[in-house]
Design a protein around this nucleic acid. Structure first.
Lengths: 372, 372
DNA sequence: TTGTAGGCGTTATCAA
DNA sequence: TTGATAACGCCTACAA
């Protein structure tokens, strides 16, 4: 009863804890205790409070709660672009894990631009998120932002890419191994001249995939030919340009470091008039369930996207609750899926060994022991 | 200087407006005025404040601001599933528009389940979002939730689907027209027996696509055969089952009401051993740029996904700012993209009229006047 | 078990 | 132009 004057605008206000307390003829403490199910409240008062809550449609204001508790139960997730088909499943994994723990997700698209990324990070800090999932754009954070981040003590978990200026936890995949296996498979199938469309070498996983490629050539006794290596940027267009450059040189096969560049490369092949797998073998990263019925089926290194997101949130939550102390770097394993784009089927057919239907064979092959 | 006791745990606290005020030897009012660039502050004080802000790495706590301003500059967006390839671009359109206006996006996946959807709506209200974008799950909201929503006065813009219990704004597409054009095209190409895998008829756009199908048959002088119509639920599996049922009946063509069901149908075709477009023509909804290099290329009704999201946020913001008064229902136009899955190429080839390369022809056709 | 009052970090009103 | 101070809605230590 301390409000001296009536509200001016009769702004439509949701009822608050005081309204409920008044209605139930109890104190705000009691209401709070009932709503948060802590402390012991006598059945009588509890019933009165519950009735009032019901009657007034009371819902606690999470802003106010966050302010006093210093916890928003919100995490921010910064990805390059949710439209890039790699991210939806990852984000979904993160959202599911977050939701189960009572957290919500603030989604940010950085477009791989440092400036945008930094602005989002600042915004997230200002919104007082409890933690951040970050798929880092190339380059380092500015010193001031890094400082701000460190000082805020808000935990950050890196996704897919590590960065020297991010000294927190990270969830990545063993991309070197994935690339190694894919390229080894291309070699095993009989391809000798294998070209590479790599990701940006300035990015940790771009570099890792390149290393895997190189080591596989070596292990297969093939020559690394710089002329057959093009550095792309993970976007469609760079794959297209790489295709226009590489395919006319007629390599036996191409290994492309991600899916979008594969799309670009195949567009180039289309224009040039080359077909996969008849004219060149192809293996790449990332598989998508909705591709399974289109041709050619791609031989790919599949990454556990959902798990990446879910695991990252898991780690973040442990960090938030103070359980986790030591820095952890989780490396998830990729899985080679052999299908027809690599030319596997053709070779088999040539040698008259094939009798299975096209859709069964690749899966059988992908479970072959040598791929572990 | 009113804190009576030292902080207990030496909890790491970000500096607040009082810290800055003390440091700059001014009042909090001055700091606030400088930070928000309103009011007139003398250059001297402004400089002092700015220096202090810099020094202390001060960033306003948006929770506190939101509490007093009753505005969080956050919107919630509830989609069925961000993994459904329809949504990323829509969400991106929304996020871009939101970001430009200084808003952030809270992402929620309802999985098309009413219960999950309602829980998210409540959470969003509790978090005091300024507005909500909602792709409604089938069925109506419970009376209590609807009531809560109405009472909260938080504007909701429906996406793609309208619902009788949502009396707010909506952004939808003219799905009836889209379906009509696609099916008319199938008929024009020469297909007589056209099957339909529809979306859920309990959902507004599922119904609309069904109506378009029906009207197109009528306009083309074809019979509507209930045996050739299967109601699906927009998920892959229902398309698969529909395919297993429909394809053995050897329709000339199939119209599938969305992309995921098309994937399922093609999987069924694969298993049965039927090929598209040789054995049956196919047209469906939703096109994706990363499909362009795979076969068969789909004849699709393309929806302006990005615009849907962007427009919805636009409307939401106008509603939030109180500019928009009347309810608005925006209906965006789809666009038919003719490619090879409908059998267009085959017919042409049969009649020896085709001389263009496969990848050029469809685009030329899609610009044909009769498709406007 | 229940109530009171102070504080969380802002903005905004009203004096000075 | 500036400063003091009351909201905003919640939680919680401390008192009763």
């Amino acid at each position: 009863m301390k409000s001296k004057r009536p509200r001016k605008k009769r702004l439509h206000k949701a009822s608050n804890i005081y309204d409920v307390a008044r209605h139930a003829r109890v104190s705000v403490f009691t209401v709070s205790a009932v709503v948060n199910k802590n402390g012991n409240v006598s059945p009588t008062l509890r019933r009165r409070v519950e009735a009032a809550v019901q009657k007034l449609n009371y819902r606690p204001n999470l802003l106010a709660r966050g302010l006093v508790m210093r916890q928003t139960h919100t995490i921010g997730i910064v990805v390059r672009d949710i439209v890039n088909p790699f991210f939806p499943l990852l984000v979904r994994g993160a959202e599911d894990a977050a939701q189960k723990a009572g957290y919500s997700v603030l989604l940010c698209n950085s477009d791989d631009q440092r400036e945008k990324e930094e602005q989002y990070l600042e915004l997230l800090l200002s919104k007082r998120v409890d933690g951040i999932l970050l798929n880092k754009a190339p380059g380092n954070l500015s010193a001031s932002r890094r400082n701000l981040l460190a000082e805020s003590r808000v935990p950050v978990v890196s996704l897919m890419r590590t960065s020297p200026d991010l000294k927190g936890d990270a969830v990545i995949t063993d991309d070197e191994k994935g690339a190694f296996e894919a390229v080894s498979h291309l070699a095993r199938v009989g391809h000798r001249q294998i070209a590479l469309v790599s990701g940006p070498l300035s990015v940790s996983n771009g570099k890792a995939r390149w290393r895997g490629f190189r080591k596989a050539l070596q292990a297969s006794g093939l020559q690394y030919e710089p002329d057959l290596v093009i550095e792309g940027d993970y976007h469609i267009d760079s794959g297209y340009r790489a295709g226009l450059f590489l395919l006319p040189r007629r390599p036996d096969a191409v290994f492309v470091a991600n899916y979008l560049m594969t799309v670009g490369l195949m567009k180039a092949a289309d224009e040039i008039g080359l077909r996969c797998p008849e004219d060149f073998g192809l293996a790449s990263f990332d598989d998508y369930p909705w591709l399974s019925c289109f041709r050619p089926r791609l031989t790919t290194v599949e990454l556990p996207k959902y798990e990446i997101g879910a695991t990252a949130v898991q780690i973040l939550l442990e960090r938030i609750s103070g359980k986790r102390i030591r820095r952890s770097l989780v490396k998830l394993m990729p899985e080679l899926h052999v299908r027809e784009s690599c030319g596997f089927m053709l070779r088999k057919r040539d040698s008259k060994e094939d009798s299975l239907t096209p859709q069964e064979k690749p899966y059988a092959a992908s479970a072959a022991p040598e791929l572990q």
